[in-house]
């Protein structure tokens, strides 16, 4: 139920309530964007027809650096 799928904003309508999101697999859907501040090109998480968050590359890299840190650590 709390499933959310990432996709890219490719078009925003004039009143800024809806946008077209491209899921990268050929699927495009109209999505409500009133809960987020978005620009064309942003990646968003979509749940039940609404974008609920903008995904941020800097934060994604943080997760990766956590993994690197963990893997480089000696076993305790």
């Amino acid at each position: 139920m709390c499933l959310a799928i990432p996709g890219k904003i490719i078009e925003i309508d004039k009143n800024k309530e809806h946008a077209i999101v491209d899921y990268g697999d050929g699927t495009k859907r109209k999505v409500n964007v009133t809960l987020v501040d978005v620009k064309i090109g942003n990646y968003v998480l979509v749940h039940a027809g609404f974008a609920i968050e903008v995904l941020n590359e800097k934060d994604a890299l943080e997760t990766l650096s956590l993994f690197r840190e963990m893997l480089s650590m000696e076993d305790e």
């Binding site: 809960l35 609920i52 968050e53 934060d59």
Partner: peptide, 27 residues
């Protein structure tokens, strides 16, 4: 647990910010 700690950590930083989604919370 091994270090005797008990706090909230965020593994999903690419989609979760400390304050969450403020606009959504206000709504």
């Amino acid at each position: 647990i091994k270090q005797g700690n008990a706090h909230v950590q965020n593994e999903y930083a690419r989609a979760v910010h400390k304050n969450g989604n403020t606009k959504a919370k206000e709504a």
